[in-house]
């Protein structure tokens, strides 16, 4: 899941200052799960902006709409009937959603209301943790399904570093030591011998250094 956090209201206000009719556009997928851009959050932001405009004596028409996914054309197409009625779109989608909407409607200013942050999991209600960096070269199998690149503060492939205290990371005492978790789970699975293998450095060329990445599959194309 892609996680995101809403930008401060002052920043949003600054970016929409020149518009009077706004479509506040939510996304019902990842950002809804992390409670930053779903239907509820879209309604909350619209309500805040309308009240703020009334408080300052400005006129602002802010309508809400939430697509199931802002990053897929089939869903973005639903905007075709309404987008002409608005001066701009304030998107509560992730960065990919904002860009996809802007690509379909290139003349419309699509303004991001969220800061896209990381790939993560919902650990418990209201708590989301980063556990994948999308490095493009997954090695979870060797590390008992715990990513040392993401969850170890030092990103060690050949850990542990020896600095953890009470099973917590020495860099951040609130973070569990990823290597402690790896060793414990490997022990439980009877695969502690996995640790004897020395791992070469990660191939970061699969993540960055070659511009935006692309996945192309002929079988999925129309």
């Amino acid at each position: 899941m892609i996680t995101a956090e809403r930008k401060p209201l002052a920043e949003i206000k600054e970016s929409i200052a020149s518009y009077r009719k706004l479509l506040i556009l939510g996304c019902g997928s990842c950002v809804a799960e992390c409670a930053s851009g779903g239907e509820k959050e879209t309604a909350l932001l619209a309500s805040q902006l309308r009240m703020d405009a009334r408080r300052e004596g400005r006129s602002l028409e802010a309508k809400e709409m939430t697509l199931d996914r802002q990053c897929v054309y089939q869903f973005i197409d639903q905007l075709a009937a309404v987008i002409g009625d608005y001066d701009a779109v304030l998107s509560l989608g992730c960065g990919a959603g904002v860009q996809a909407v802007a690509e379909v409607f290139p003349r419309t200013h699509v303004i991001p209301a969220l800061n896209t942050t990381f790939l993560g999991q919902t650990k418990q209600p209201g708590l989301w943790l980063e556990n994948c960096r999308g490095c493009g070269d997954c090695k979870l199998d060797s590390f008992a399904d715990i990513c040392p690149v993401t969850r170890c503060s030092k990103g060690l492939f050949n850990g542990p570093c020896g600095g953890s205290k009470n099973e917590k990371c020495e860099v951040d005492p609130d973070t569990p030591c990823a290597w402690q978790l790896i060793v414990t789970r490997l022990e439980e699975r009877g695969k502690l011998s996995n640790l004897e293998k020395v791992h070469p450095p990660a191939r970061w060329s699969k993540k960055e250094g070659r511009g935006p990445r692309k996945i192309a599959r002929e079988d999925q194309r129309t």
Binding site: L9, L44, Q48, M51, D52, R55
Partner: peptide, 8 residues
């Protein structure tokens, strides 16, 4: 917190 963000 949300309403105090815009000064209410």
């Amino acid at each position: 917190r949300l309403i105090s963000e815009f000064g209410l």
